[in-house]
């Protein structure tokens, strides 16, 4: 399976930044500071369970 990580990142960005480019950059920076770099993941990226678990936690923190 592949692509789930990008989907999760896109969902966080949509929830917190809508189409606002400046906010998208800010949220991406927050994700990188938490240890996940959105630029490293695309539709073909392996669904790494450890990364998915970290993103689930981040989604909880960022999208309460």
């Amino acid at each position: 399976m592949a692509g789930k990580i990008k989907q999760m990142i896109d969902a966080i960005l949509a929830r917190r930044a809508d189409d606002n480019e400046l906010l998208q950059r800010v949220i991406k920076t927050k994700l990188i500071l938490k240890g996940i770099n959105p630029a490293k993941y695309d539709e073909q990226s392996f669904d790494d369970p450890a990364i998915i678990a970290r993103l689930e936690k981040m989604a909880q923190e960022l999208c309460r």
Binding site: R16, A17, L23, V26, K30, L33, E61, L62, R64
Partner: peptide
């Protein structure tokens, strides 16, 4: 800063 940033888009 993480706690602040999680809860608002205000810088």
């Amino acid at each position: 800063m993480e706690a602040i940033g999680d809860s608002t888009n205000v810088l």
